[in-house]
Amino acid sequence: MVLFKLILIVSILLISLVIAMYSTLFERKIAGFFQDRFGPDRAGPGGLLQPLADGVKLFFKEEFMPAKADKFLYIMGPSLTMLVALLTSAIIPWGPGITVKGTHYYFQVADINIGVLYSFAVVSVGVYGIMIGGWASNNKFSLLGAIRASSQMISYELAMGLSIIAVVMMTGSLSLKDIVEGQHGFNWNIWYQPLGFIIFLVCAYAECNRSPFDLPECETELVGGYHTEYSSMKLGFYLFAEYINMFISSAMISTLYFGGYNFPFMDSHALSVNAVGIIGTTVLFLKISFFGFLYMWIRWTLPRFRYDQLMYLGWKKLIPIAIVNMIITGLVIMIFR
């Protein structure tokens, strides 16, 4: 079992890294297609080697550090961002698992009974990566970006938490495994929590600093935001962490609202346990790819919010709606159970 967990950890790590790597290519490809272009297609067949070329380029760039930067924190920033981005993947159930020689292997690294809370804790620490990076750069644009990032993430975490509470109330458990198994078959949470889903989606976009909430790295106002002073692979880590965050948050959205690895007709007798396991994982990854695509779709459709609009939306719209959603869910549960 320990060996299985080890293999699972390594493969999840590798899969997240590879997916993040190729998301950069797909982001550019999709951006191109949305703008009536083809996007990068020169490196390798259909541009498939582009991420490698980008990676090599980033590695060979000059490592520049501003003269008055805080050395320790300057290196700490991107490392922390990367670490935190990868941590959440530990609690996501990747599939119903397979049975080999009588032992059932469930595709989840750690089924902790406070799963949702854990993911929140980790996401909150994510603010520090950006904050520290922006602070250590000793640059006014970096600092402004960092301040924006931290206040944005703190504001949207509230609404996000409130929207998940409704899901947790329905399941009666904080464990992600229980939440997924509560959505067996086609009994997905999205049918009961459409409003909560929209709030969660918007907050997830804000948490990942993705357009239309990409104010922390707003190029037109802040040069590059919190990573203005970063170059080479440190910058690469920041950008990479953003794509890992996208991947993980897509996985979280699929898990919380779209049934995770559950798919319709999974109980039919034609399917063996292992077949369900494999199809389930594939289905989960299909859902994740759809949400990944949605991230890019939204990015290339919507313009950036103004900062006061961002705060207005977060505090005056999303939080009240989330609270109302929570109260209604509570009432419905109280009356019908």
């Binding site: 009536d36 272009r37 779709w297």
Partner: peptide, 24 residues
């Protein structure tokens, strides 16, 4: 704001499948 977002996304999706202007 949501209907606006959805109609905007419909426009971008239309461009996603439209013929590309690029000449390789």
């Amino acid at each position: 704001y949501l209907p606006g977002i959805i109609s905007g996304m419909a426009i971008t999706l239309k461009h996603f499948f439209s013929r590309k202007a690029t000449i390789r």
